[in-house]
Simulated scan of single mutants.
Amino acid sequence: MAKLKRSEVEPHEDYGFFGPGSVVWKVWSYPTAPTVGFQRSVVVEELDPPLVAAVHATQGIYRRSRTRYDRTLKYFAMVAFAGSREVCKAADVLVKVHSKAIGHLPYGGGTYDANDPASQLWIQLTGWHSILYAYEKYGPGKLSAQEEKEYWEACALAAELQTCSPDDVPRSREGVRAYFERMRPQLSASPIARQAMTHLLRTELVLPPVPRWAKPASWVVAKAQRIATIATMPRWMREMAGIRQSRLLDMLIVPVMKVSFALAHLNGQVEMGLLSMISPSTVPVVAPIRLGIPPRNKEVLTPAQARERHGYAKPAEAHLEFRDRQAARVFGDGEAPSEQGLIESQEVLGPLS
């Protein structure tokens, strides 16, 4: 595991939307975030019928599991840590990427659109909730009441980078619980949802190839993360999805992961080395924060200020003509949507393969 030299790390342009001392940096920079937290979020998301329909149609998680994990994690990390210009550009191109994920629902009729505000709100809340849940279960523990309030306010602010409305984001733990209770009747463990969830729990698919002598250790790491992720999922959700794990394993994995993550977090270089194994594209995003490299401009912006400064539209209002053309191709002409957004995204989120 090569040491990352400070001279090789490019500083961000500014602090983005949160900055040092924020609860976002505290929670999202802990090693529970890119591992159990992120895996939990992408697994739980699949219970939403429109979302899993889009995932199944594109087949990205199956054809390029490691690359898809890498690109998606990089985007989430950029929202938390990257400079405002980079994040605005990423959010803008993501609208075009999601414009490809439209079509007819395979069960129950109707259509799906990855840019639909309801789908984007589901992604936003499952992601932020999962990152916090993993931090509290396998990391330092619960946030203070003030930190928790700040965390959900930050989640609402970050929602401005999606097509959903920040007004729809709950501002408390109770509000988030109420949201998930409202969503529960709409969730479905359809065959494609179960397939996706089972696949996304295979941690070994996102780990790099290792020499034969290292395969046992790699297997142990993958197995431990799978157990830890399942242990964060409520029983009703596991039963719905046909995922089984004993209460004993749920209990035993906690001290193992708490100690492992605490040791990894002691050294920024070690943490970056581990991150490079599961998401190499995310390292340049997180490294300046973990290695204490300040940005070129020490300022924190709001998304509105950043859009005005860098010349970007609100995601909900971005690329409307392009999205209309995509809809016409799919629903009018019966053709496959253009992959222009995916191609353009490689400059921002990394290569597709």
Rank of each mutant, 00 (worst) to 15 (best):
A196H: 01
R184P: 00
R202C: 12
V210I: 08
L200W: 02
S190H: 04
H199Y: 06
P211K: 03
E239Y: 02
T229V: 14
M233F: 07
I192M: 08
T198E: 13
T229F: 10
A224P: 05
Q186H: 12
Q225P: 00
H199Q: 10
P185A: 12
L249N: 08
I192S: 01
Q186F: 06
T203H: 01
R202N: 15
R182T: 13
T203F: 14
R244T: 12
S188I: 02
P209G: 04
L205Y: 01
S190L: 10
I243S: 06
A228W: 09
A193N: 03
F180H: 01
T229E: 11
W213G: 00
M240Y: 05
P208G: 09
R182M: 13
R226V: 07
W236C: 00
L248S: 12
R194N: 04
P185W: 00
M240T: 07
V220C: 03
H199R: 10
A196L: 09
R247D: 15
A189L: 11
S190M: 03
K215C: 04
Q245L: 15
R247E: 15
A189E: 09
W219A: 14
I230T: 12
W219E: 15
L201F: 10
R226S: 08
V221H: 05
A222C: 10
R212H: 02
P208L: 12
S190F: 03
V220W: 13
L205K: 12
P211A: 09
F180Y: 04
R184M: 07
R226Y: 08
S246M: 09
Q245H: 03
P209L: 11
V210E: 11
T203M: 13
A231G: 05
W213Y: 05
Q245I: 15
G242T: 10
A196R: 06
R226C: 09
R212V: 12
P191F: 09
A241M: 08
A196P: 01
M237P: 00
M237H: 00
F180M: 07
V206I: 15
A241S: 13
R235L: 14
P234C: 08
R247C: 03
P191A: 11
P234S: 02
M240N: 04
A241I: 07
M183N: 05
W219Q: 12
T198I: 00
L248C: 09
K223Q: 13
R202G: 12
V220F: 13
A224T: 14
K215N: 06
K223N: 13
T198F: 03
P211W: 05
A189S: 11
V206K: 03
R226N: 09
S188D: 11
R244Y: 15
M237K: 00
A214F: 11
A189K: 06
A228P: 03
K223R: 15
R182Y: 02
R238K: 15
R212C: 02
A228D: 09
M233T: 13
Q245A: 08
R184I: 00
P216S: 02
P209H: 07
A214V: 06
S246F: 10
